[in-house]
Design a protein around this nucleic acid. Structure first.
Lengths: 205, 205
DNA sequence: CAGTCATATGGTAGTCACTGCCAGAATCTA
DNA sequence: TAGATTCTGGCAGTGACTACCATATGACTG
């Protein structure tokens, strides 16, 4: 790895860390990109080369966790669907658990600032579609495969999100992965009251 | 109703409609708020009094559908949970189906513009939390109620979103509500391959 | 080591979303 | 009609973000 990449990685980290400090100290809205750039001792234009928007400075860590998990799944094409889903869930949570303070700070900022919340939701949605794309390959090819994959990915993401929002409130006394297992059990045993419909439509999309 | 409210409603509609035209003709990014204000023959500051951000101009209709459904559910406290959930899903879809072009345009704009997509996801998330707040009242009060409600609301929202994304591609040949029933059936009959876990953790959050 | 090439950087100028403020117009009330 | 309330448009300003260019810096070649 050349010196160039080393430096690049270093400044990237530096910018993100300084940004995080300023956000936590002064709040997201009361921190300007100029301040962040000055704190990291780079020009504003350099900052924008690394991070396209102010919000990505907040969400980088979470994004990395999600991207990593779906990339990992992509490299395990032999993994069957239910096991793969569980593995992805556990993998994401494992990574998030490696830095509870950061995750908590991210969710705090999201709850205070609408644009951060919006970008977080956008991130989650992107992950969900990526996951669905990967799941559909593991389903028998029929006209419902995409539909089923989208639903399955949504449920997985739903579990992750719900679990994280609970866990992040008390990261020391709870354990995200066992919470996730509880959620899966609830789902599997009918512990979640969902409507049961007689599917009398013959429509086949 | 006084003349004031009539006028207010009229200008609100006017602004939203003109905005929609311009967005569809020129794209979201290539339309400025000044252009919208000029087209609606109001000052920019007036526009901002009606719509806090440019994105809300796009999402107003979808937001109304979602707000309406959750408001309706709030007024039916006697409705049991599974039936209530199904009713909410059908109600949202029914409203969306009343204006397929608008819904399609919203999703088109969202797929082209990141900030619109982000705000749409934010909107969906807000609806999901509102729905969860409403569902938790219909669950036996125990330490899992909130968790269960969040999961159920997430699944309902997941069904709505997935169904709409399929339906919106061919609103003439498909029917959102029967798609939703198919999704519920899939879920209920185990048609969606989800991980089954033996919950051996004794943690009780 | 010198030369040159590719890339990274910082600065400048500009656009545009959005905010706060104020004077005047329109509507409502008595 | 007089006065109180609310709506409106314009103006000035902030700050995120873009396009562009000159310069500097690490990377490669003879």
């Amino acid at each position: 790895m050349g010196l160039r990449e080393v430096k690049r990685e270093r400044t990237r980290r530096l910018i993100a860390d300084k940004a995080f400090e300023l956000f936590n100290d002064n709040g997201f809205g009361r921190t300007t990109v100029e301040q962040i750039a000055a704190a990291a001792e780079v020009g504003p234009s350099t900052l924008y080369r690394y991070f396209p928007t102010k919000e990505t400075l907040v969400l980088e860590f979470v994004e990395d966790c999600l991207v990593d998990a779906v990339t990992w799944l992509r490299e395990q094409p032999e993994l069957e669907l239910p096991a793969g889903l569980q593995a992805v869930i556990e993998r994401v949570l494992e990574q998030l658990e490696s830095n509870p303070d950061r995750v908590r700070a991210v969710f705090d900022l999201a709850s205070q600032t609408a644009s951060v919340s919006a970008h977080l939701n956008e991130l989650i949605w992107r992950f969900r579609t990526d996951l669905a794309d990967e799941l559909v390959l593991r389903l028998p090819a029929n006209n419902r495969a995409e539909f089923t994959a989208a639903l399955a990915a949504g449920i997985a993401m739903n579990i992750i999100e719900t679990v994280v929002r609970v866990w992040v409130e008390a990261p020391d006394t709870t354990d995200a992965r066992s919470l996730a297992r509880q959620a899966m059990t609830l789902l599997h045993t009918g512990g979640i009251p969902l409507p049961a419909v007689s599917d009398n439509s013959r429509y086949d999309y």
